[in-house]
Amino acid sequence: MSAQGIGPGYYQGMPNDDYHKGPGVSKSQLDLLHRSPALLQWSRTAPEDDEKKTALNIGDACHARILEPHRFEAEYAVGPDAPRNTKAGKDAWAKFAEEAGDKTVLTHSEGRKVELIRESVMAHPHARWLVESAGDVEASIYWNDEITGELCRCRPDKALPEMGWLMDVKTTADMGKFSRSAYEFRYHVQDAFYSDGYQAHFGEAPRAFLFLVISTSIECARYPVRLFSLDAEAKDRGRFGYQQDLQVYHECMQAGNWPGIETLSLPHWAA
């Protein structure tokens, strides 16, 4: 299913690349516009380094292994537990490279880490229940914003429409600093934006938006797993934030002008 010419609705099976290159404005695009409208236009036209696009993203590997095991099998290959400086090891890696094709290669230790992280998630009873419950992984929601009329889109990691829940998987290098990361990466804006998109399609707000947070760093020999939901104040601030950004987006679209000068302030300690 292609995203070109798509209208408001709930779509399953849309390729990820088509979604990201298709019409409508997303939360990640609003993040760029929040810094500078010109950055949104830059992101659409700046050349990409194809060699770097295939670089390992441990977060995506974990996401795929947990929620999309079929995609993990199709896109990732775990290397053999064999040293490359021995004949047997070289032979094993040569055979592996031939079989892996154009898949993203994980070393044996990286593959082991991804598997341990998945098992850590499944050891958390509520997280396991969410992962195993019936729902739609990577479904795409499109809607027209009521105020600006602009086409918006979001792609929750997992939607559970029967329960009215949305879930997003996040990885963090430091679980203790996740609350700060949630603000810096504007997860409160994501919560409000996705929730309003859900409501626009299903006619009611989701009963819960949950962040399944996984640490990629060891603590006490384990990879910590936590489930969070944002409080009402955070959701309200997120809604106010995305509505401001969407109004700027609408004005830029109407005028065909995307300002690019950012104001830089001295750090607080410089005073």
Score class of each variant (00 low, 15 high):
Cys154Lys: 00
Tyr223Ser: 05
Val105Gln: 06
Asp231His: 01
Tyr11Arg: 04
Lys158Ala: 12
Lys103Asp: 00
Leu210Tyr: 05
Leu227Cys: 02
Asp196Phe: 12
Asp31Cys: 10
Thr171Glu: 04
Glu262Ser: 15
Ile147Gln: 03
Arg239Cys: 04
Glu51Cys: 11
Ile218Val: 13
Tyr76Ala: 07
Val169Lys: 13
Arg35Pro: 07
Leu160Phe: 07
Glu73Ser: 02
Asp18Ala: 11
Gly197Thr: 05
Tyr76Pro: 02
Phe72Lys: 01
Tyr183His: 09
Ala38Ser: 01
Phe240Tyr: 13
Leu210Met: 11
Ile6His: 00
Gly197Pro: 06
Leu116Gly: 00
Asn257Cys: 15
Asp168Tyr: 11
Ala64Thr: 09
Arg186Val: 10
Phe72Asp: 03
Leu266Ala: 04
Arg237Gly: 07
Asp17Ile: 13
Leu39Tyr: 09
Glu115Thr: 08
His124Thr: 03
Thr107Trp: 14
Thr263Asn: 12
Lys158Tyr: 09
Leu230Asn: 00
Thr86Phe: 05
Tyr19Ala: 04
Gln243Ala: 11
Val121Ala: 05
Ala92Asn: 02
Glu262His: 08
Ile117Ser: 00
Leu30Ser: 01
Met122Ile: 08
Asp157Gln: 02
Arg222Phe: 14
Leu151Gly: 03
Trp129Gln: 12
Ser28Phe: 06
Met167Ser: 08
Cys252Ser: 00
Ser26Val: 06
Ala234Met: 14
Ala46Val: 02
Glu119Met: 09
His20Thr: 14
Ala61Gln: 01
Asp81Tyr: 04
Ala159Cys: 02
Ala271Phe: 10
Leu67Ser: 01
Gly111Leu: 08
His34Met: 14
Gly7Ser: 13
Asn57Thr: 09
Ala200Met: 09
Pro125Asp: 02
His268Glu: 15
Thr172Met: 11
Pro8Met: 12
Thr148Gln: 03
Leu264His: 12
Glu99Met: 09
Asp60Leu: 14
Leu246Thr: 03
Thr148Ile: 08
Ile261Gly: 01
Tyr183Ala: 13
Asp31Trp: 09
Met175His: 02
